[in-house]
Design a protein around this nucleic acid. Structure first.
Length: 311
DNA sequence: TACCAGGTAAAAA
DNA sequence: TTTTTACATGGT
């Protein structure tokens, strides 16, 4: 077993804990976990070696991150490089928040949370494939249930890495899910349709239709059009992926129930708005629409009431 | 019991 | 082209 520890210095500002709360561990989720201040996940390098990443805040006050990387055999340079690249992508080191804050400061519904959560970043998935499959599991069911069936899928088809006596799972490879049977997914309480969608996305990945570099250079509309050619990938799923895997913060998943509720709450003082209303609001946040929702979700999670518009 | 969950595809209007 | 409906299941 090989292990190496690095100290990383994310660009300021960066709120580690609040950003990672999204992955606060649930019993069923084995791929991304955040517990006791440590974010954990497994990535795979080009040689197929699994690397466990464990990231936590280094010391109080200072904003450095301690990253421990562990592999089964010798720690290779390739494994280290992949691990470092992955964690910087996941933690959105490349996302510069300054222009967003400049915009947010003059936006009544956004200003208080942007200020309170200064340094909050949208934590990402490492791959297009993982983001799409994860989104599909979350279609039309509550997120607890989505996490449960996803956990079963990961436990069955994800590669395993044992570290300090604890098992960690990588997200299943497309090769594996592409040849899985619908009936096996059914036994894990996937609907038949969800099972077919996941298998179709896995095949698309194998056929090179989810090429990250190709998707990156497309406009949002072009990328959504390309992605929705895959059965089971609608606009919502495509937008989720563009935001959560590729970090395209200008997308706005206006069809998302949670987004509709959080925009309603903090921008309209209501329980729920329709997609059109939500998208109209989001136009004011361009090109940081989904980043804005990240802040509103954080406020919601923290139980912060919407500002009263009467004073 | 009915209805809702961070939707989508296919049928019907 | 726009509007319903089936899909599956756990929680309230």
């Amino acid at each position: 077993m090989g292990s190496v520890t690095k100290i990383l210095h994310p660009p300021e500002p960066f709120l580690f804990h609040e950003s990672l709360l999204r992955f606060r561990v649930s019993r069923e989720e084995y791929v991304n976990s955040y517990a006791d201040g440590v974010y954990r996940r497994v990535v795979e390098d080009a040689n197929g070696d699994l690397v466990l990443l464990e990231a936590e805040k280094e010391g109080e006050g200072r904003n450095s991150i301690r990253l421990r990387m562990t592999t089964q055999g010798r720690m290779t340079k390739s494994a280290q490089d992949v691990g470092l690249y992955a964690i910087k992508h996941i933690l959105a080191f490349d996302l510069d928040l300054r222009a967003f804050y400049k915009m947010a400061k003059d936006d009544a519904s956004l200003a208080p949370t942007a200020k309170k959560f200064r340094g909050l970043k949208p934590i990402r998935y490492p791959s297009v494939f993982e983001a799409l499959v994860t989104a599909i599991t979350a279609q039309q069911v509550n997120l607890t249930f989505a996490g449960a069936i996803r956990g079963r899928m990961v436990k069955r088809w994800g590669r395993k890495l044992r570290v300090d006596g604890k098992m960690h799972y990588a997200f299943p490879r497309p090769e594996r899910l592409a040849r899985a049977r619908v009936s096996t997914f059914r036994s894990m309480q996937f609907s038949e349709r969800k099972a077919e969608y996941v298998i179709d996305v896995a095949r698309a990945a194998l056929e090179g239709r989810l090429d990250e570099n190709e998707l990156r250079i497309l406009t949002i509309d072009e990328a959504v059009a390309r992605l929705t050619e895959i059965r089971g990938v609608g606009r919502w799923t495509a937008e989720q992926m563009l935001f959560r895997a590729l970090g395209r913060v200008e997308v706005f998943p206006g069809g998302d129930l949670g987004v509709q509720k959080v925009v309603a709450r903090y921008c309209f003082g209501e329980e729920r708005v329709d997609e059109k209303t939500a998208r109209m609001q989001a136009d004011r946040w361009h090109p940081w629409a989904s980043l804005a929702t990240t802040y509103l979700f954080a406020a919601w999670r923290a139980g912060i009431p919407p500002a009263s518009d009467t004073d």
